[in-house]
Amino acid sequence: MLMTYNALPLFKFIFMENKSAPTVPAKKRKEPFWLPLLPDGFRDFLTEAGEISRFVTRFFKEVWFPPYEFKEIFRQSYEIGYRSLPLVGLTAFIIGLVLTLQSRPTLARFGAESWLPAMVGISIIREIGPVIVALVCAGKIGSSIGAELGSMKVTEQIDAMEVSGTNPFRYIVVSRILSTTFMIPILVIMGDAIALVGSYLAVKLTGAISLTLFFQEVFESTDFSDFVPAFIKTFFFGFAIGVIGCYKGYNSKKGTEGVGESANSSVVVASLLVFVIDLVAVQITQFFGYL
């Protein structure tokens, strides 16, 4: 799999832009007076934000109408969901284990070790599970979609699809975005469960606790207001990962370098977006008084 990951400065990550040829320059429009005043990086950032918005708009325009590419959606769901499970599972397991082991001494100082399952459970369900899984998926899925679509673009497969009468946006982009949007939440649920098992083992390492008691304590301290907002935001994580991967790949520059760059920047932007969405989600849940 193509996945270059250079350590570029952050601002370069954000403003990384592929300068694919504008298809229709149409009539020459007079440049607005403020355009040269904007710093280059900021202009590129705005340009990209605008293009991504248009990409998302196009997705919502196309997603409702047939033909639905079910076969492709299933194929992508398999690739994105099932194939990511081992990676997600391992990461979640380790995170659950480590989080519990790390929290123990602090709680032990207060003699509150009995709170360990409740505390770790809430951390995992509310925040750690969704974000870690989304980040892992941004890395794995974002780069693979970015690279795959990038190489499809470069080798004219997207044009070939267009010529053969299949709407490539619908076949390639819509199916992938739908798959990530619905597979990431499932991966998060599974990741949460596996992380809790990891956490249970960590609790068990230092003290006797039954599996039932552990999960009872976890669920006793968990409320719908912990679970539901955290679950809803995973759909947005999945959507963002899909959109960014597809956008970066679909607008890939020509040549192998373009493919690498698409993969790279889709990982970076998708990871960043995961955090931004997380921040916004916290604000929104707070606004609705769920915290």
């Binding site: 099932y82 649920i189 719908f224």
Partner: peptide, 18 residues
Amino acid sequence: FFVITGTALLIIALYFIG
């Protein structure tokens, strides 16, 4: 299998919390 397991876990979690 993947989807059903995920959904089942979701339902179980919702049930216990509920």
